[in-house]
Design a protein around this nucleic acid. Structure first.
Lengths: 213, 213, 213, 213
DNA sequence: GATGAATGAGGATTCATTCAT
DNA sequence: AATGAATGAATCCTCATTCAT
């Protein structure tokens, strides 16, 4: 609930003194967006309030009208960043005759391929970096992204077992295996060896083939 | 050997005046240990040289006799923690009748099981966190750990192919796959969900079984 | 304009929020004055930003709002002190019937006589002292003071030659000769023998008489 | 009396424990030489005891066996540096039929031409730089170099007056004038415009010609 | 005498935060 | 609500000086 854009959508005809609510909302949005970019690009410590303000095109002091401290700004922003990019994939239904392998291939591969654009690796880095010190960060990520995804995998693994599809057993026991290629890929491409990126999609498909024979 | 003073590894028999070599070795060790703790606990940016000195029970300036900058200290620590354990595994020879799968099982599983003790996961977190902004970090890790390991895997994958062992092909094409369980595990256990740790060793064995049928 | 923030010389009619322009101008002036005193009194290296701030009655950080580095502050101060007084002399026109000797006597002697008040000699000392190590210093002095003055002298020497006034030739060949009394004087009075000051003005006039017979 | 090389030249047959006096003298000389180079090259503040030690090929601590503080080292060294380079010239007798102008031309011009080699400009800079803060510096220079030279000039100017040689009067009144070209030259060539050096010898000769018609 | 590791005060610079306008 | 000048604590790093060996 960080990005709420106003106090009731209805046209409140009672004009208020001072800036309009829309203006305020716009300012807030500018801060959020600027902070997002700043934190993703530089990490928490290396980001400066001045930098955020500059990016947002406002004065330093203004930020403090919306967020009491740098840490509060960070925590607020993170919630916005860490919306589950996989939710869409999770919400897709499996077809009646579709194997679990095919289902994962159909719904997850495209997401994996897109995972690196939009600074997803940067987000991962952010969470890994500050997660231990700013617990809310890891917390949000775990609750909104990680656990649901693991649960999703476990669920369909159970289905595969029930249907007698090969690979169900192992995935049911080790649902993390399905995510493994994603992390090696993000780590490799984002930090360790950006010069020699691996194809996360291909890695994922290879892994999928292995699991489901 | 990046950025350390490194007083010559050879035993120079030239009599030293002043403090004994043991003393300096002890000082150096104290710095390394203190820095390790500090960086692991707080991350790079939030750590201070003063804090390291305090922990080590020495003066601020003393650190600079051993490491020219904070960055060099960081890189030095990372190397110390991360490099050695894997090298040991890589140096083991494969037996004449041993399958590649067995070889990996024999040499790598123990390492994987030990990977989390001694703050290995924490170091990984550090590298991911700061690697993008402190290039020397990712550099050290890439050169000393990552690439050698990938090469090691590729080499034995080729051997598996030559011997007609199943799984060789896919591993030769995607050597990163073998490391994938390690990373999900470290990420999961170290940051995202330390309350629900996965068994990295088991994950790795499962993955190995999948790859080599 | 090297290294100063320079908030736009044009009168931007855009209403300012926050502190008034007068206030900032006053702050800036306080910094300049304090820095001047500090540098003249202690030299560059021995001066501290904290000392300047204390003298100016402001916080350390405030200085950095106006000058990005200690070096820039130094260069800025030097320019302020040194540049203007000679420009005034150079801008004066020579009269149609005025000999070059008279022109120099009329325009330069007063400047020479005033050269020691306002810490001019101290500045010269600063430039000589630090010029070799802080190149921007010598640079500023050379570009803003020295070369223009030499050029000015050369120009009028040429005029003297054309008019057949005695001394033109030698001055055209050695324009530095005209400045020589100034430097002996500053050096003698400022450092070597302040107890036995020489009269720079008199020295200059004597030199002028010699050159122009 | 800074460079004295031992305790009595006679062969004291009583062998002493520890290093020989010659060794000590050599160490001291090495320090002096190194410090000289260091101070001339970098100035006082920018010079470091470590740098001096490195240059001298000894340990930092050793310097303190010979000079109690950095300042003492500086002051000691300066005396060695500031030996009058003109003493030789001053000691030459004027010939019975030689004009004062010729005498100066004969004895001073060669010195002037040599004045820039051997870091003379650097010495001047050193004295100007620190003279105000370390009074002994200017003091030594004044007593050993400056005043004797001025006196020397004044003396011969008086002689020129007595003999009715032109220029005597003005030089008697303004002896500094004779040194003026030297200072402009050193200042110009050493700091302000090393790229456009003036020929100090030529400048001096021109000045001499002017003074003595 | 000689060494060089150790010390710690001190200095330039940054930046989150405040507050008068 | 918005501004941005001002603050000063905090940080990295340097270097004269000491002293155990």
């Amino acid at each position: 609930m960080t990005g709420e854009s106003g106090k009731g959508a209805g046209a409140s005809p009672a004009r208020r003194r001072g800036p309009s609510p829309e203006k305020t909302a716009r300012t807030r949005a500018a801060i959020v967006e600027a902070a997002m970019a700043e934190f993703l690009e530089r990490g928490y410590s290396a980001s400066t309030m001045a930098g955020v303000a500059r990016r947002a095109g406002i004065a330093k002091g203004t930020i403090y009208l919306y967020f009491p401290t740098k840490e509060a700004l960070f925590a607020g922003i993170v919630r916005d960043i860490v919306t589950n990019p996989l939710r869409e994939a999770e919400e897709q239904e499996i077809g009646p005759d579709e194997t679990v392998a095919d289902y994962f291939r159909r719904t997850l591969v495209p997401v994996m391929r897109r995972i690196e654009s939009g600074g997803r690796a940067a987000v991962a880095r952010l969470i890994l970096a500050e997660g231990a010190r700013i617990p809310v960060l890891a917390e949000v990520y775990r609750q909104d992204v990680f656990l649901p995804l693991i649960e999703h995998i476990r669920l369909h693994a159970a289905r595969a077992v029930k249907r007698g599809e090969a690979g169900g057993e192992i995935l049911a026991r080790h649902p993390h295996l399905l995510l493994a290629p994603l992390w090696v890929g993000m780590v490799n491409n984002g930090v360790i060896a950006p010069q020699h990126p691996v194809d996360i999609g291909a890695l994922f498909e290879a892994s999928l083939s292995l699991i489901f024979r």
